[in-house]
Design a protein around this nucleic acid. Structure first.
Lengths: 219, 219
DNA sequence: CGTACTTTTGAATCGCATCAAATCTGGTGG
DNA sequence: CCACCAGATTTGATGCGATTCAAAAGTACG
């Protein structure tokens, strides 16, 4: 979508490549817990990782759902983690030592600029997320999410309806019902495992002309 | 709260100081509009600026409300703005040319690192915002906001209830009612123009023991 | 085959958005 | 100083949509 380096190899300078260590983490595993002192920077190359934070009475709040990219980028200089990182789908995780990363950023201005570009992208994504959460109706949030899901074609990969519901800040029941409605209206088709196909825009103007945003974009 | 430079002067390198141009913008003024090509980076030194985006039927979505800091930091490399920046309170605006900023970042690694720290803070703030918007009840969002408002004492500056309502993603009527309830419960006191005083925690456990998060923190 | 989880449907309840209207406020001009 | 207006503040009533609780059916996995 922009000038952001696509792959980890393009982003990191040569010197850091050797410092990277890749591992497979099974579902249910953890990258870090609340209160831990950050030692590594984690990159999700595959699978799914969720940043969570517990409410008082056991309510789980989902802060981030990452399927390709860094997790908790902002922990660069943080003294402690303020949330948990849980693996919700068997994931390939690349980790690199924070110390080396910091040194590289402090000395390699070109690398720092690439890192800034990545952070800019994250800021935009978060603004989109806020924009989405500002919408009241579940259908609006889902359509907004479908619109901002950067994917080649009309097919959108979805990593589990329940975790999507958490990301949208909605009960999973409501989301299931919303999906069913959209499917009945012909605006959505569920195909393979976790992949949806969206009806070409303008096809079925049936249901609700209200509450649609244009293509969302995080400022 | 962290290693982030407090003032603009500390953040920017000497070379950029001369490039800065400060101006007073009256209420109702604009920093930029949707679709404009970014030419400057704007810093809010006083007053209030709001990033807005229009929904289809005239609904206004508030993406950011800035009272001290940069606006649209992520527009560093963006081709166009995707929202409007409106001045909601007479503001002092510092602007500096994007070209010079980019050059400085590309050559001065130390400055780039400070810029990264600032972006990290912004990412955390946005995560807090998402966390807040994930809360269902108005009271929860308000208390969460009061908790995350970094202020010296128990006094919290508020820039207009209506704009706060927009930031919380809530109708202003609902927010007014919520404020009145909290005030009646003794958890909140309105003092001077736009400044509130929060009851010391644990004072009035009266109303609702449910739905309280601890001190919020954006991961 | 049993267990755990997801998916699905149903019904009751609650909180907020919305519309409406009244009051209060600050600021402007006569 | 007062009349007047625009906007902020407040209160009330109503309806919608989501949450919540509950339960059943489907599915994956050991």
């Amino acid at each position: 979508m922009s000038v952001v380096p696509q792959s980890l190899a393009e982003l990191l300078p040569e010197a850091l490549h050797v410092q990277c260590y890749t591992a497979d983490v099974p579902k249910g595993g953890w990258l870090f817990h609340l209160g831990d002192a950050p030692q590594w920077m984690f990159y999700v190359a595959g699978g799914e990782v969720v940043l969570e934070r517990m409410g008082p009475q056991g309510t789980v709040l989902v802060l981030q759902r990452q399927r390709s990219g860094f997790v908790a980028e902002a922990s660069l200089h943080a003294a402690r983690y303020h949330c948990d990182a849980r693996v919700t789908r068997p994931a390939q995780i690349v980790r690199l030592p924070l110390r080396a990363l910091n040194e590289a950023l402090a000395t390699d201005a070109a690398f720092a600029l690439r890192w800034i570009a990545m952070l800019n992208a994250e800021v935009r994504r978060l603004r989109q997320q806020c924009e989405r959460l500002s919408l009241k109706r579940v259908q609006d949030r889902l359509l907004h999410w479908l619109g901002s899901a950067a994917s080649p074609g009309p097919a959108v990969p979805v990593g589990g309806v329940k975790s999507l519901a958490a990301e949208l800040g909605v009960s999973h029941e409501a989301l299931y019902r919303c999906i069913a409605d959209l499917e009945a209206a012909g605006q959505l088709q569920r195909t393979a495992q976790g992949v949806w196909r969206i009806a070409s825009d303008g096809a079925a103007p049936a249901q609700r002309p209200a509450g649609r945003l244009g293509t969302p974009s995080g400022c």
